[in-house]
């Protein structure tokens, strides 16, 4: 298919056509080399400018990656803890925070007799105030209950226990403290 379309007339016509074309200007080569040098200089400048900016951008990106990395972890911990706190009944939470005397109502001896649970904090509290143990001895049903239900039990019978404690020690709770707990 490499067919030749040789035609002297067409060649001659083309030769004449391009011969009649005005030549390039005299300073064409000078302009060309000037433009070429300018382009080379621009390319060098671009190289010089690009690398520091890339390094700066990389540093900033690294910082941005590292900084927020710690916050989400913290937030994740908070997010894990919050539902657990929310799941706890407010009645159970109150004795630990607002009213200190309530948890001490857990019977000391009953705690000893009952099988050990995996929460030593309550045991420490019970050991710390053994003088309140007789109050709990009056209710042996609590012994058989798991720890969480005991807290609920204490929270439910808080008023009764409080009155018993106050009778035992003959030191009623101050009115201001009661008001605070009511508000909370």
């Amino acid at each position: 298919m490499q067919e030749k379309f040789s035609d002297t007339d067409i060649r001659e016509a083309l030769r004449r056509h391009f011969a009649a074309m005005p030549p390039l200007s005299d300073d064409f080569n000078d302009k060309l080399f000037a433009a070429l040098n300018r382009k080379k200089r621009q390319r060098k400048m671009r190289r010089l400018i690009i690398w520091p900016s890339i390094a700066a951008a990389a540093t900033v990106a690294l910082l941005l990656m590292l900084l927020p990395a710690s916050e989400p972890q913290h937030n994740a911990v908070i997010a894990q803890v919050q539902p657990e706190v929310a799941n706890q009944s407010p009645k159970a939470a109150q004795p630990e925070t607002s009213e200190e005397p309530a948890p001490v109502a857990i019977p000391h001896k009953a705690e000893r007799k009952a099988p050990r649970h995996s929460e030593p904090a309550t045991q420490k509290v019970a050991h710390a105030e053994p003088e309140l143990a007789p109050v709990a001895e009056e209710e042996p049903a609590v012994e058989a209950q798991p720890f969480r239900s005991r807290i609920d039990y204490v929270a439910a019978n808080r008023d009764n226990m409080r009155s018993r404690i106050s009778e035992q020690f003959e030191t009623p709770f101050s009115s201001s403290n009661n008001e605070k707990t009511d508000k909370s």
């Binding site: 007339d9 001659e12 016509a13 083309l14």
Partner: peptide, 28 residues
Amino acid sequence: LSTGREERIQALEQALELLPVHDRLLIT
């Protein structure tokens, strides 16, 4: 096309001017 006469070459020059851009490029 190959009967080389002066008039024909001049006519070809004019005809080349009338060709579309790509055709003229290919011929060139």
